[in-house]
Design a protein around this nucleic acid. Sequence first.
RNA 1: CGGGGCGUAGCUCAGCCUGGUAGAGCGCUUGCUUUGGGAGCAAGAAGUCGUGAGUUCGAAUCCCACCGCCCCGACCA
Length: 449
Amino acid sequence: MRLSRFFMPVLRDTPKEAEIISHQLMLRAGLIKQESAGIYAWLPLGLRVLQKVNAIVREEQNRAGAVELLMPTIQSADLWRESGRYEAYGKEMLRIEDRHEREMLFGPTNEEMVTEIFRTHVKSYRSLPLNLYHLQWKFRDEVRPRFGVMRSREFLMKDAYSFDLDAAGARHSYNKMFVAYLRTFARFGLKSIPMQADTGPIGGDLSHEFIILADTGESEVFCHKDTLDFATPPSNTNFDDAVTLQATVDKWTSLYAATSEKHDVAAYEAIEAGKRVSARGIEVGHIFYFGTKYSEPMKAQVQGPDGKPVTVHMGSYGIGPTRVVAAVVEASHDANGIVWPVPLAPFEVALINLKSGDKDCDQACNDLYHKLEQAGLSVLLDDTDERAGAKFASMDLIGLPFQLIVGPKGLKSGEVEIKERKTGERVTMPVEAALRRLVELVSARRFMG
RNA sequence: CGGGGCGUAGCUCAGCCUGGUAGAGCGCUUGCUUUGGGAGCAAGAAGUCGUGAGUUCGAAUCCCACCGCCCCGACCA
């Protein structure tokens, strides 16, 4: 992409409504624009990041055996009356009426709808286990939206819903998502820690929040230091192997880890000195087993091996991609702006033409641009006639992982400069060598976890 | 929903107290000079002063109502 033909409205000043750093940087870097309280437009640069998040979420959901579908944003109130939640949900639910005065709502979640789809089409135990997921916009009319897309009213959500014959099967389904989440967050370049969460009316130990650590995180979290060093489950994990999967989950839940709401001071202080971690965290995922809470009232049943009807056991599993983008910015930025991990970067390379209009610079940049793209890298070529300083500042702000700097001085001796955004390290080398080096650097960092 | 604050140019803000019909910096346009970390000079475009209703000869400024946005609290992915 050529910057001169792109749409990237960066701001020099910090808009006053933004309080936390991720919100400030997302506005300044031209990722999002607020349209109303808690409602944001995703500008091209932000959309590219969001799409990368979504792609990784999909890969890992699919790998774990979940099947994608897409349910609508607008739902019928009647569906929610079946589960009793239409009355119970409260003012967070945005209720609307269509021209025929039918009661509708903008979905805050999809348990009812997916259960309705399931019961219509699935009649036999042989179809289980089943996990259906979708990526869809949701609306929760928060009393007080804040922190930009970290806590917005409209937000994108990946939610998966599992269906099993019994509690044991549901636990296996739960474990699949548990492992998929560890892999997903690792690929975002984030260290996530599963923490025991409130299980509500069902009880048991089958609910976890996935927390990532960030100095500016919303909540206080406590954990054992060794949890941070647990290995991410590999990409060739066999998700059908219930025993091994359980062992992985057991390991990840073996050490103390809790948010401030669930904090047990005694258990925390029982951790050996030097291994206690007290930090700030952001919740980026939540998985939940809720048994027959919806299948019972909504009569989601299959015929069992013995011919008798069985009410299915369900679980739901959420990741908020829009929130993840903000969380990554919180976890990865410096005084100059965002620092994207390669897997989520809107472009992998910033190709900076320090003197647009100069024949040698233009030609070298065009050549490098095409060669990098041919090598499969995504490149944002700054071909504008801004001054060098302004270009550097903008590119640092939007945080592309690598900058390839081409100027008339270096070109005289056939050299260009590579700067790594994260470290600020700069290396000067011949054009062809820089090309090879960049391809190496980017491909080495593309796949994490 | 309780408490607090703010709405003036694309962005950050001054002007309001003490009414006289709107400004600065950045950004944008044009020209010249510059050109390796947010350049300089000159000229220029750009605002129903959130909305409505009052007071007044006259309202960005004073009064009232409403709307929007932000922060703290309760609530949540």
